[in-house]
Amino acid sequence: MNFDNMRFTKNHEWVAFENGSDVVTVGITDFAAGELGDIVFVELPEIGTTVESMQAIGTIEAVKTVADLYSPVSGVVKEVNGSLEENPDVVNKSPFKDGWFLKIDLEDRAQLDDLMAKSDYDTLVGR
């Protein structure tokens, strides 16, 4: 796994970016997925929704808990991972790859600088 092109939030979301593109991919970390346990349902915003950083934009449900999904960045939702509807367990199995949640067209690329690098995130969760 290459984490160089990823940034993290204290709410345990990750953002993956590519050079030269304003569209980033968003998901939750392996730590968050592990804490929630078996994820049974994911509710995501509709394509075209304008979202703001730190705004609750969806929910992630396990058997006996539910967590809000906070948008790590501001922008417009370009794509959502439709396969999670049928197979939410992918988030547990592959949180950083197949278990991605949505793609957001960034309002402003500079906001990525406010997020954490992998090493800082690992410190946050005590790894």
Binding site: F41, E61, A62, V63, K64, T65, V66
Partner: peptide
């Protein structure tokens, strides 16, 4: 589907 209910949500 108990996450809909008050004791969790």
């Amino acid at each position: 589907l108990q996450t809909r209910e008050q004791h969790i949500r």
